[in-house]
């Protein structure tokens, strides 16, 4: 095992394409990723605002389970792909050390169910692993079809670099942009990389939430983006599926595909589109872009 993998609920549900493409890409790079046995909710749901210590305890249970997989090493790296999981798990770690009272409560709770917690897990984001452990050289060498001519707006979302900037710049992250450059795509310069996608509001205060989403997509389009690449199931879902509603509200048709960055990597690696969950997209990638990314002599079908 190279890394433990914490999927989280989205990756098994509406964000399944993220998991499919992530696994396919890591396989292609010969990096082994083992799913954490018996994982549970990361605590990122509204639980956090209802009961802080239970939310932290929930997340910490996953960390305790992960420590069991350390095999005598002094720590273990666990990949959390979903932004909410990534932040939820890191936040649990920080809260336990930063607030000793809460920490004691949580560790005591875990011990009661036979889980020891020593804070020895390193929570890693796939972008962090890809850029810092694997490296652009190895990634570039795996590319079969450069995504030449494809203009990508890299959207990091609100949670990967905030409030804890562990591997990228807090104001203006660049890792995904560099990754896209490594697979031959062109990235557009937009200042909205970490701006709220409106996801948490589109269900409750849709007028406001959708307006935020619309601004993001409109600006991406204005800067010539063919596609928006995300690293978060909620952002992907929110930005993609609400475009019809946005058209109704703001009178502008966007039709901008929103994909996971791992899906674009998979396409560049020449992996079968089904393995990447490309068929699950509601707004398909334009044919003229896909025609450049050949797969065994055939056009990639969507």
């Amino acid at each position: 095992m190279d890394y433990l993998y914490y999927p989280g609920c989205s990756s098994k549900g509406n964000g399944i394409a993220y998991e499919e493409s992530l696994k396919a890409v890591f396989d292609a790079l010969d990096v082994r990723m083992d799913e954490l046995p018996d994982w549970n909710c990361c605590g990122a749901t509204s639980y956090m605002s209802v009961d802080e210590w239970k939310a932290v305890a929930l997340a910490a249970r996953n960390l305790g389970l992960a420590e069991r997989q350390a095999d005598g090493k002094d720590g273990v790296d666990m990949i959390a792909a979903c932004s909410a999981c990534y932040l939820g798990l890191i936040r649990a770690q920080r809260y336990i050390t930063d607030y000793p009272e809460l920490g004691k409560q949580v560790t005591a709770g875990l011990e009661a169910v036979g889980i020891s917690f020593k804070n020895r897990v390193r929570i890693r984001h796939p972008l962090d692993v890809l850029m810092n452990d694997i490296g652009t050289e190895r990634i570039a060498s795996r590319v079969k079809h450069k995504l030449a001519g494809m203009k990508v707006a890299c959207y990091y979302g609100c949670q990967i670099v905030r409030p804890y900037a562990t591997f990228d710049d807090q104001q203006s992250p660049v890792m995904m942009d560099r990754l896209m450059a490594a697979i031959g795509a062109e990235t557009v310069n937009w200042p909205l990389k970490t701006r709220c996608c409106g996801g948490s509001l589109s269900g409750t205060v849709p007028e406001t939430g959708l307006r935020l989403s619309f601004i993001l997509l409109k600006e991406a389009k204005k800067r010539g983006a063919d596609v928006v690449a995300t690293a978060c199931p909620l952002c992907q879902f929110n930005l993609e599926c609400n475009q019809g509603e946005m058209r109704r509200l703001f009178g502008e048709s966007l039709d901008l595909p929103v994909v996971y960055f791992t899906q674009l990597m998979g396409l560049a690696f020449g992996l079968p589109s089904r393995a990447l969950g490309i068929q699950r997209l509601f707004i398909p990638l334009p044919a003229h872009l896909l025609s450049r990314v050949q797969e065994g002599g055939r056009n990639v079908r969507v």
Partner: peptide, 8 residues
């Protein structure tokens, strides 16, 4: 906080 060219 920021100078940018995105329009609200």
């Amino acid at each position: 906080a920021e100078v940018s060219d995105w329009a609200m």
